[in-house]
Simulated assay, not measured.
Amino acid sequence: MTLTKADIVREVYMRHDDITKAQASNAVESFLNLAKAVLISGDDLLLSGFGKFNVRNKKERKGRNPQTGSELMLSSRRVVTFSPSGILRAKVNEQ
C-alpha cells in the first residue's frame, strides 16, 4: 500500500485530539514546503531517527537509448537521494 499525503493528514488528525483536520492539513503542507525549500536550495535534510535526504550533483555522461541503441549525452543534473537512519533500517529489517 502506498501512503499518500491525504493519508498522512488523516493520521495526524486522528492522533491529535486538539487540532482540526484543516490544521492537520496545514501542518503537513508546511512541513512538506519547508522540506522542498531546503532540498531546492541544495542543503541536506536530516530527520533524526528517520534518515537523511541529500542533494547530489551528477556530471554529464554518455548514455544509450535502450530502444534504438543509439548513444547520447545525458546532461548534468541534481538528484535527491535518501539514506535511512540506523534506527529505521533496524526496524524495517525486524519484520
Rank of each mutant, 00 (worst) to 15 (best):
S41G: 14
G69K: 04
K59T: 12
V9P: 02
V9A: 02
G51P: 10
M1K: 15
G42L: 09
T20S: 04
M14G: 13
S41P: 14
E71V: 13
R56M: 13
A24E: 12
V9D: 06
M14N: 15
K21A: 13
K62L: 10
I40W: 01
K91D: 01
S30R: 04
A27P: 01
I40R: 14
S83Q: 14
M73P: 10
I19W: 02
S70G: 03
T2I: 14
M73D: 08
E94P: 03
F53G: 00
A90L: 15
G86I: 03
T4K: 04
T81W: 02
V92L: 06
G69A: 08
M1L: 15
F31I: 06
K91M: 04
A35K: 13
N57W: 10
V55M: 02
R56E: 13
L74N: 12
G49K: 04
V38E: 07
D43A: 09
A24L: 06
N57D: 07
L45T: 07
S85A: 08
K36F: 07
K52A: 06
T81K: 00
K62M: 08
N26G: 11
L72N: 03
L74C: 09
R56C: 05
L46D: 10
N93L: 11
T4I: 06
T2E: 04
V28E: 04
A35I: 02
S75C: 12
A24Q: 09
S75T: 09
M1H: 05
L72V: 04
V80M: 15
M14E: 10
L32V: 05
